[in-house]
Design a protein around this nucleic acid. Structure first.
Lengths: 110, 110
DNA sequence: TTTTTATATTGCAATATTACGATTAATTAA
DNA sequence: TTAATTAATCGTAATATTGCAATATAAAAA
């Protein structure tokens, strides 16, 4: 089917999955790493840095922008992208709670 | 194409993407949360707890097992699954480094 | 205005993922 | 041995994702 049954999961579970999807492709990981390194990065620079076609990078940028993890400002014909620190922090909190869960070791089987 | 060009990315970038994929579906998030809560969980219990068919759950369990995030032990006709703490810790380290990057604010544009 | 530059959008082909019915495999119970 | 139980695998349908050529859009430069 290819269709996730979101309705049977909690909001928290769906949110975690949506956020994780942002990092589930190496191109988006590379884009975010570059934005952390050079926080102020033109779309064209990302195209040069990462070896993918311009429409492909543009598409990945759009996904990250839709999640709110990055934001862009138009400068003439160029667009400069940055990490959206507020959303990044919120995301870290949500993922952090999930990743840092404590295991109940009273019931181990393997 | 649907085919990720893994060869143009670093091992670290590909690793982060692979690990994130584990959490990029709410069913796998739900499975992992349940295993944290009841660390010793039969496949059949997960099928009941989460509302997906047995082959679907089995498929998600296989993906998590392939990544090493969980392990299973056979008990009669049942299989009992647990979090693999060692791999979970390694994963947290790799993802943590990525999520906790510091922003270079000297170069902000937006 | 025309041309150039930079990015976004569209359309499409190919691969990946999700989900499940049917079946298989393996163990236990009768 | 046979039946029942549990989970894995197979096969398949449907949707999602990735990637890019072609095109559109919008601002700057000539």
């Amino acid at each position: 089917m290819g269709l996730t049954k979101s309705e049977i999961f909690t909001n928290n579970q769906n949110n975690i999955a949506l956020l994780a999807k942002a990092f589930a492709h190496p191109a988006r990981v590379a884009i975010l790493q570059q934005l952390f390194k050079i926080n102020s990065c033109y779309c064209g620079d990302l195209v040069n840095e990462i070896g993918l076609a311009q429409p492909t990078i543009s598409q990945h940028l759009k996904e990250l922008k839709n999640l709110g993890l990055i934001k862009g400002s138009i400068e003439g014909t160029s667009v400069c992208y940055c990490i959206n620190e507020d959303t990044w922090k919120t995301m870290k909190t949500i993922l952090g709670e999930f990743l840092n869960q404590d295991i109940d070791n009273s019931n181990q089987c393997c």
